[in-house]
Amino acid sequence: MREYLRLFGAFARIGALTFGGGYAMLPMLQKEVVEQYGWATEEELMDYYAIGQCTPGVIAVNTATFVGRKQKGALGAVAATLGVVFPSLVIITAIAAFLANFADLPAVKNAFAGIRVCVCVLIFNAVCRLWKKSVVDRPALVICLAVLMGSLVLKFSPVVFVVLAGAAGVAVKAWEARRS
């Protein structure tokens, strides 16, 4: 039991003290998981990260599941994962409840109208970052633009595009292999 609580606690600390998830979480993970508890080596952590990026879902959650499983099996995985999401639940619920009560104040309305402009810029920057990592050659460019145009014009669920793009990736690579 104590080990489960320690997994939950360590990952709750990681969730509470890192802004942004993903790579922002790496230094905290190194401190808690590698240095403090010795639950994984530096190399294992990098492996978990690499696989977290090659599996769907939130990378921080994937990493927590890996570390928890290695320590205490499936239940350990659940303990660590619940730990990493627990602070988000508490903090977001408090803020959402607070904002819901003040949403009609003029200052809050004006502030969020300004913030929405900032969200546009943040999303634009995120797209630029992802673009560099994902659009690596011409077929990838075609996939990206096809999905962009497709989802602007057709109101399909993103799930459809994800499944089609995965199939397209396999098809492109198979075609390239046959040509060479």
């Binding site: 999303i123 990838a140 595009f161 089609l164 793009a165 995965g166 492109v172």
Partner: peptide
């Protein structure tokens, strides 16, 4: 994932 990554960029 070679196909999924650019698709994710396009969706965002």
């Amino acid at each position: 994932f070679y196909g999924l990554r650019p698709a994710s960029t396009g969706l965002i």
